[in-house]
């Protein structure tokens, strides 16, 4: 019961954080230079459109009333109209969100699978030349600008070798019956490969380093010594007891990584013209499409905050010391 309560408190806390972020967003877009109406109204909208928006968002009202109108609209999923697309921002975002999530999760799964194995392996090879050579390389991958890595992969594997397409999610002129058919097509997957690898190469460092240092700590624990005294097989000692324990914090970091990755997506999606939330945000900001920029930002923030919550939840589920307190 108290576990449920502490989770509830955490949820409430994060709801407050979300509210604060929403408020910051409101201020950020209202306080920007120029006409305050600019946040929702493009001069090229027809007079009726402008009227309707002014009413909907209370743009002729004082700022504090606008704020409450804004909150009320948000609660109903009402994000305004995109200047460029002339469609509701929400529609646009729901359209792009799957692309971003697919890119994020596929790259993180690859990164974590590799990072966990390599981290455990490096811990095992501790003090060897392999380790001495591998560590600086791993640190260097963390020091790489993601978009630059994307550029290099693009130049080599797309432009020079022609193995993969240069951008987008599918070849021009192709169409699919359903989203599922699209996402499982080789066409989509070959488009996904390079941006996915870019993000994966950048992200593998965190799970790798975390796994390695956890593994080094865990292997010094008494229960590992006991497993050896029990005459258990090396597999049981290293994997069943060592890795299983070292994995706990790595798994929790996955959720946090989703949040970070989403931010990194912004540049990589731009390099690969991947129609996701990040690229949309950049384009919207560049084109002064404020409602869309605001909506994309908000969606990213929601996922980041939700992932923080998920991380807490994961931790309390995966660690029996907490889940069975």
């Amino acid at each position: 019961m108290s576990k449920f309560k502490s989770f509830l408190i955490r949820t409430l806390q994060l709801a407050l954080v979300l509210w604060a972020v929403v408020t910051i967003l409101f201020l950020m877009f209202r306080l920007m230079p120029g006409n305050p109406l600019a946040a929702y109204i493009d001069p090229t909208f027809t007079a009726e459109q402008q009227e309707a928006l002014i009413r909907q968002f209370g743009l002729d009202q004082p700022l504090w009333r606008q704020y409450f109108t804004y909150l009320a609209n948000l609660l109903q999923g009402e994000l305004g109209y995109s200047f460029r697309y002339r469609t509701p921002v929400a529609d646009r975002i729901w359209l792009l969100l799957p692309n971003t999530l697919i890119l994020t999760f596929s790259s993180l799964i690859v990164a974590y699978a590799f990072g966990i194995l390599a981290g455990a392996w490096l811990a095992w090879r501790r003090g060897t030349r392999t380790e001495a050579a591998a560590l600086p390389v791993v640190l260097a991958t963390r020091a790489m600008p993601e978009f630059w890595l994307g550029m290099v992969l693009l130049a080599i594997f797309s432009f020079s070798l022609g193995w993969f397409p240069a951008g987008g999610t599918r070849s021009a002129g192709t169409s699919y019956d359903s989203l599922w058919a699209l996402y499982t097509s080789s066409n989509f997957l070959s488009h996904l490969f390079l941006p996915m690898m870019t993000l994966a190469i950048y992200s593998q460092g965190l799970p790798l380093l975390l796994m390695r240092s956890n593994m080094l700590d865990v292997m010094k624990e008494d229960f590992i010594t006991m497993a050896k005294i029990k005459g258990l097989s090396p597999f049981a000692v290293v994997i069943r007891h060592g890795a299983r324990n070292a994995l706990l914090p790595v798994m929790t970091s996955f959720a946090i990584s989703v949040g970070y990755q989403l931010q990194g997506n912004v540049v990589v999606e731009s390099v690969f013209s991947w129609p996701g939330l990040g690229r949309e945000l950049v384009n919207a900001v560049a084109a002064s499409d404020y409602p869309l920029a605001q909506g994309a930002f908000l969606m990213i923030a929601v996922v980041v905050i939700a992932m923080n919550l998920l991380a807490d939840l994961l931790y309390s589920i995966l660690d029996p010391r907490i889940s069975h307190a």
């Binding site: 624990e221 008494d222 029996p320």
Partner: peptide
């Protein structure tokens, strides 16, 4: 073998 600290010698997970 019976260790001194059974807490640390049992695997917590």
């Amino acid at each position: 073998f019976i260790p001194q600290s059974a807490m640390n010698s049992l695997d917590p997970v």
